[in-house]
Simulated scan of single mutants.
Amino acid sequence: MLASLIGFLGDFDRAEEAAQEAFAIAAERWPVSGMPDKPGAWLLTTARNRAIDRVRRERALAGKIHLLHEPEAAMDEFDDTAIKDERLELIFACCHPALPLDGQVALTLRALGGLETAEIARAFLVSEETMKRRLSRAKAKIKATGIPFAVPAAHRLPDRLDAVLAVVYLIFNEGYRGRTDLGAEALRLGRLLAALLPDQPEAHGLLALMLIHHARRRARFRGEDLVLLDDQDRSLWDLRQIAEGCAVLDRAIRLGGRGAYVVQAAIASLQTREPIDWPQVAALYRRLAGLTGSAVVELNGAVALAQAGDPAAALRAVDRLDLDGYLYFHSTRGELLRRLGRPAEARTAYGRALELATSAPERRFLARRLEQL
């Protein structure tokens, strides 16, 4: 409904106000008069009419009112197909590359996730006032620069889709670090994207990746303590969700998917098996590193190499990376040095990781590692 209103009005704030008014009117009237036959259409028509009335009162668009007016027949035009298209347009508007990344994330959660500003602020550990400013700046930028409320042309879709997928994955990663509400919200957005873009393998790859990781969420923490993959209680894994993720991955591969999210989903799928085929995981990380050029991916590949039985080669690979400010670089070095019987160096690496850790579970985990040396 919000997507439809934003497309109709071309304004995020007006659309949100109109939607809120329509729901308030429904909450007042429906208990008395009963729910209408087409509640979605009723809400949309009421919201549109309220928006038109507000514009008339403000006289801000007095010369264009006739363009906004729609007949009551709009009640019959509220169909799932239109709403799907408008949601897709809204996703691309929220994730337009002209907006800063923090604005893209905030707008996506606000407009498509329905999260309140205070909820988004809590999730990203900033004040509500800071998040309000981010949202306001993003909305103002859309209005000032005329960012289109539209799906990009076919030749521009791949680049723009990458930005959309990156925003959803960023939201998921925030949830994966312990904020499970954000993880669930990213999954909902991922399902929406896969449904709206049924022939895009990377959309399915991202959904598969998130499903498989999210299925292990209950096992990743014991109380408030972080638990590594090898130590997780597999009985806590959501096997249905893992099976769903693997099925989505199969669909992505059938669509010809060979991109970064599909490869990451394949790695996650292998890590659900017992025993884990670590040489195959390491091979997939090498392919992923070739696709992304990411030092972090190379770091993960080194971990897989160590798990495959060669911690010395893994350490050599890690020491070639320029990731001094990255927490997991130092924690990985600490673990490899510990395995190689070099406790003094391991202690230094774990100490540096502890300096960089920001979450309480990470700090407790690293402190325990130091105590064990």
Score class of each variant (00 low, 15 high):
T358L: 10
C95Q: 08
K84S: 11
E128T: 10
V105F: 01
A73E: 09
R59Q: 12
L90A: 10
H214D: 09
G146K: 03
A344F: 03
I83S: 04
L192G: 14
R122V: 00
K132D: 13
E89Y: 05
L189E: 02
N49Y: 03
C246K: 15
D13H: 03
S359L: 12
D76E: 09
V32K: 15
P152W: 06
D324R: 05
T130M: 10
F221R: 14
D85F: 03
P100W: 03
L68D: 04
A317W: 01
L366W: 14
I25S: 10
Q264R: 13
S269Q: 12
P97H: 08
A106N: 06
H155C: 02
F23V: 15
A195V: 04
R160N: 09
P201L: 04
S269R: 15
Y326S: 06
P158I: 06
E345G: 06
V297N: 02
T108R: 08
W237Y: 14
G325E: 12
I147A: 08
L340W: 01
R48S: 07
R216A: 03
L88R: 10
E355M: 13
A47D: 01
G290M: 05
R320G: 15
V318S: 09
L315M: 05
F149M: 15
L226V: 09
T348V: 15
E371R: 14
L112D: 05
E371L: 13
P279Y: 03
D11K: 00
H155N: 06
E355W: 07
A353F: 04
E335A: 15
Y169Q: 02
A252Q: 08
H66W: 02
A357L: 11
F365R: 09
R333G: 04
H155R: 11
R54P: 02
R50S: 01
L109F: 06
T46R: 00
R352T: 13
A18Q: 08
D231T: 07
L99S: 12
L354T: 11
P71W: 00
A353W: 07
A154I: 14
G223C: 05
